[in-house]
């Protein structure tokens, strides 16, 4: 009996470790300006995020179907999308995000602020979640907010896609936190369809560069359409 609780304890620890790694990757991505590094961080984050459901208590008895789905998730988030993004970065031949709307130090600071805010929100919610793990919801909200922040504060199309991807990871984590096997089976998993959108965006970037309709994939150049 003691051994069993020990095992549970360590599994919870493992989940906590993974969650901390996710937060770390969020902070790293906010502070980094090299696109290739960003892609690597996203690959790492994708793997960690899709591993988390394996280590949560209430997912202890998983159906074969959901295990297969989780593996597909791992493949898409950890390998397929980052690989695709790597190709895009190679094609567009730019290494750095220059002139972000909000600087790197300020972004890092914002990231820390998101963690605080997420902790505050989680504390205030007072709901009995199916998963008794506060850190999960904190990580989820932080990732979501930081993703949105990255999306809005960077000018390069590829960095915006990375921000979107991060936001999507956050949504997936929130889904996992709120999930109860009965209903949400195959609800949270539909988040994978968002990856389809990400795929399309990256494809857009790759295809455009081949057509060389612009030299530089910078959405700041996409400033022709406006209301006068």
């Amino acid at each position: 009996m003691i051994q069993l609780t020990d095992a549970l304890f360590s599994i919870n620890h493992l989940a906590d470790a993974l969650l901390s790694l996710t937060i770390l990757s969020v902070l790293l991505s906010l502070g980094s300006n090299r696109l290739l590094t960003l892609v690597k961080i996203m690959a790492f984050q994708g793997i960690v995020v899709s591993l988390i459901p394996f280590f949560l208590e209430h997912h202890g008895e998983m159906h074969t179907g959901s295990i297969v789905l989780l593996q597909i998730m791992l493949l898409i988030k950890g390998l397929l999308i980052p690989g695709f993004m790597y190709t895009a970065v190679q094609k567009i031949k730019i290494q750095r995000e220059v002139e972000p709307v909000i600087g790197y130090n300020a972004s890092l600071f914002a990231g820390l602020f998101f963690i605080l805010a997420a902790a505050f929100i989680t504390d205030r919610l007072h709901i009995s979640l199916p998963v008794e793990n506060d850190l999960l919801l904190i990580t989820a909200i932080t990732t979501l907010a930081a993703g949105l922040f990255l999306l809005m504060s960077r000018k390069k199309a590829i960095t915006q896609v990375i921000g979107y991807l991060m936001m999507e990871n956050g949504i997936y984590l929130i889904g996992t936190a709120l999930a109860k096997e009965t209903h949400t089976m195959y609800v949270v998993e539909f988040g994978v369809l968002l990856d389809l959108l990400v795929g399309i965006m990256i494809m857009g970037i790759i295809v455009h560069n081949i057509n060389s309709s612009y030299d530089d994939v910078d959405t700041a150049l996409l400033g022709q359409l406006k209301d006068n």
Binding site: Y164, M167, L197, N211, S213, Q224, L225
Partner: peptide, 21 residues
């Protein structure tokens, strides 16, 4: 397939994707 069409499409996909998420 003009530059402005590309901009409009990028905006459309990006903003609507955030919405749909």
């Amino acid at each position: 397939r003009s530059k402005t069409a590309l901009e409009a499409t990028w905006k459309y996909v990006m903003i609507c994707s955030v919405g749909i998420a």
